[in-house]
Design a protein around this nucleic acid. Structure first.
Lengths: 91, 91
DNA sequence: TTCCAATGAACAAAGCAGATTTAGTTAATT
DNA sequence: AATTAACTAAATCTGCTTTGTTCATTGGAA
């Protein structure tokens, strides 16, 4: 399922126009990303939370050639699923 | 930031009512969860993708008491961030 | 709406860092 | 009012790391 499918399904569920649904979804994604970029966590009860997480530098390797490479410290986006989401996927 | 804050910010960005925005966000979350529950991946370009991932049973331990426990096989929700999301968080 | 051009995602190889596991209280969201 | 997230202890296991090609997706224009 891609974004177009998601918009169609949500529009069908909410009986709103695809235009408005796409507008809201895009804005919601941008808002979440902006917040994580600013270092603030976004928590949506039952679904999960998005937050930035710091990765320390480490010795890695190029899986293709096998040669050692140095992976620098990073800040990456992380998602933690909420209880409802976990329970429903587990079944 | 919680769901109420997200709805307020998105409503401000889109100039739609908080009611409609909340409706879309809730429906989108339910649609994503439903899809992952059905085993189908949801890909949103630039943001990331949600998919179910299988965990095999393993030997773990109770970190509180230290006793060994058996962790059963599971199916858990997983999120992989997209390029744009990663790049923006990295800065 | 439909097509094109262009950008993003998937795929695979092996080793290490980080997430995950229980349980109970506090704080917070619906 | 009631349910859920956060927090924390130490050991095992999962995923990230690169690079190039193939394919899907996006956004603009006719």
């Amino acid at each position: 399922m891609n974004k177009a499918d998601l918009v169609n399904l949500v529009a069908a569920r909410t009986e709103l126009t695809k235009t408005d649904v796409a507008l809201v979804i895009d804005a919601a994604i941008e808002t979440i990303v902006d917040s994580v970029v600013e270092g603030k966590k976004v928590s949506i009860l039952g679904f999960g939370s998005f937050e930035p997480r710091d990765r320390s530098a480490r010795q890695g390797l190029n899986p293709k050639t096998g040669e050692k490479i140095k992976i620098p410290a990073k800040r990456v986006p992380a998602f933690t699923a909420g209880k409802l989401f976990k329970d429903r996927v587990q079944g």
